[in-house]
Computed example of a mutant assay.
Amino acid sequence: MQQQLAALKRLTSVPAKTGRGRVAIFIDGANLFYAIGELGIRIDYTKFLKYLVGDDTLFRAIYYTGVEAADEKQRGFLLWMRHHGFRVVSKPVLQRPDGSKKANLDVEMAMDIVSLAGQYDTVVLVGGDGDLACALGKVSDCRARVEVVSLRSMTSEALIDVADSYVDLEEIKGKICKQDLYNGHR
């Protein structure tokens, strides 16, 4: 019952999709990387940013990612991101005993989402990690509109439950992917 009341409160106290005010975008780079791999597309980040902001005002767009020191291609990509409207938050990728790699930037994302609350009207999380639901719930309680954009198969139900709106990357891939300059294909 309390969850239903909280959901009703959010729906009645949050501005409509149009007129979303100042928009803060938080992108989980690893989640997005795996999602676009699953979809088989390459994102045009300029189009993506424009899609996420719409006709509203960009407050901040932050891209969180682990970095491999020897990866020149990644270094070039992150430099491009910095020069095209994104702040980049990174830390070194650590190799686990099982051979997998992880950077774990969830705490940094959660801290930024909460600490910047009050400076933006709408928060857009591009990612699917349910660990961020608590941070999104906090800013929702402060009357921020909460939007989640991610691939459905990689998205926690907890994020969808706390969001005022959810967009599946599958549904918007045609609007955000790079066009092949030679043959017009994506």
Rank of each mutant, 00 (worst) to 15 (best):
M1D: 09
Q3A: 03
L11C: 06
L11E: 02
L11R: 01
S13G: 06
V14S: 07
P15F: 09
P15S: 14
A16G: 00
A16P: 01
K17N: 04
R20N: 14
R20F: 01
G21R: 00
R22Y: 05
V23C: 09
I25A: 06
F26K: 01
D28Q: 10
A30T: 13
N31F: 03
N31D: 10
F33N: 12
A35Q: 11
G37M: 04
I41Y: 10
I41T: 05
I43G: 06
I43H: 05
F48T: 11
L52G: 10
G54T: 10
D56V: 06
D56R: 09
T57D: 12
F59Q: 11
Y63S: 15
Y64Q: 02
Y64A: 01
T65Y: 02
G66P: 08
D71C: 12
E72A: 14
K73V: 14
L78W: 11
W80H: 06
R82N: 04
H83Q: 01
G85V: 05
F86C: 15
S90Q: 12
K91V: 08
K91D: 08
V93F: 06
V93A: 07
L94R: 15
R96V: 11
S100P: 15
K102T: 15
N104D: 14
N104Y: 08
D106Q: 07
V107H: 01
A110S: 15
A110F: 10
M111W: 03
L116S: 01
A117R: 04
V123C: 09
L125D: 04
V126H: 07
D129N: 09
D129E: 01
D129M: 04
D131T: 08
D131R: 12
L132P: 05
C134D: 07
A135G: 06
L136P: 07
L136N: 10
V139L: 14
A144Q: 02
E147D: 03
V148H: 02
V149Q: 09
S150W: 04
L151H: 13
A158R: 02
L159H: 06
L159Y: 00
I160H: 06
V162A: 05
A163Y: 11
Y166P: 11
Y166G: 02
D168E: 03
E170G: 00
E171R: 04
G174R: 04
K175C: 08
Y182R: 02
N183C: 15
R186W: 13
R186L: 13
